[in-house]
């Protein structure tokens, strides 16, 4: 009895920080935000309960267009991060020698050593009209006058891919690392071409890593704030900016909370759809044996 009590106590003690973290920092605030989103503002210090805030969202095309735009750019960022991250991960996991591997990993980490803000300013210095890239283009004679590379959606996508690509690379490296090279050789040996081996062996094997990477990348992209605002142009709307505006500039916490809930629901739906389309499920991705 005693020892089982003790082991149960150990279990509770070990579990407690996790449970507290989940409950205090994730579940409770979410409930709070959810509750706030159902509060309609009638006038100063006058509120009623209802779904008015959600109706407002769907009645205003600017809002849901911004949400769709955010989602679509985030999907694009995710795809680009996958296309760029996969070869990098492949190189680190399969081609690089053991010793240089740590250094390569570290190089991928460098962008995370500086804050979002500094990173964005880095891009601004590079891409602005009087910036380094524009200067080099003129110096090389590729352009007759200054080129403005900043303040458009492409810049936003580049900036975000740069920020999130590491989160694509890490899960990919860890799955590819676990892949026995003999599987590839067996794939060739049994008559597969490079394409077949890649499509039928590498991709299915790396699928859990790909899915994990894509989920993280997509969520990070959709939830990012500074990069799209600082690099985006006069037309670039981002949903988190919309949420900030509602909360801070317009004192409209109710609508801000509604947007927050909608962003969570919508991105979750996109992830769910992605899992369905690729025939994966969350359990096989996260709890890979």
């Amino acid at each position: 009895m005693k020892s089982s009590d003790a082991s149960r106590l150990t279990l509770i003690l070990l579990f407690a920080p996790f449970a507290l973290w989940i409950i205090l920092l994730i579940i409770l605030p979410q409930i709070g935000v959810g509750w706030l989103s159902l509060r309609e503002k009638l006038g100063p210090r006058e509120y009623a309960f209802g779904f008015g805030n959600y109706l407002d969202f769907f009645r205003e095309p600017i809002y849901w267009n911004t949400l769709l735009r955010t989602a679509w750019i985030s999907v694009l960022v995710t795809i680009l991060a996958l296309l760029i991250g996969f070869p990098v991960a492949w190189y680190i996991a399969k081609i690089a020698r053991q010793r240089s591997r740590a250094a390569l990993f570290l190089m991928c980490l460098i962008p995370l050593w500086v804050s979002d803000l500094v990173r964005a300013f880095g891009w601004i210095l590079l891409l602005r009209e009087t910036g380094i890239v524009s200067g080099m283009l003129q110096w090389a004679g590729l352009s007759s006058g200054p080129v403005e590379l900043l303040y458009n959606d492409i810049t936003v996508v580049i900036g975000m891919v740069y920020t999130v690509v590491l989160f694509m690379i890490v899960p990919l490296v860890s799955t590819l690392d676990g892949m026995d090279n003999a599987l590839l050789e067996a794939g060739y040996n049994l008559g597969g071409s490079r394409m077949t081996v890649f499509r039928r062996i590498v991709i299915p094997y790396a699928m859990p890593g790909i899915v994990a990477g894509c989920i993280i990348t997509f969520m990070l992209a959709a939830g990012s704030y500074l990069t799209p605002i600082l690099l985006g142009g006069k037309n670039s709307m981002w949903f988190t900016e919309q949420i900030y505006e509602q909360f801070v500039t317009r004192y409209n916490w109710e609508s801000g909370a509604t947007f927050g809930v909608l962003l969570l629901v919508f991105t979750s739906a996109v992830v769910w759809l992605g899992l369905r389309l690729t025939g994966q499920n969350l359990a096989s991705t996260v709890a890979k044996e």
Partner: peptide
């Protein structure tokens, strides 16, 4: 290598873990 009529059983067999037995053989 993929055109040679020489097939190989690998040291750790290298069966494809994400395929069923039938898919492995059909590959």
């Amino acid at each position: 290598p993929n055109r040679r009529s020489v097939k190989m059983v690998f040291q750790h067999l290298a069966l494809f873990p994400m395929m069923t037995v039938g898919e492995n053989i059909a590959y």
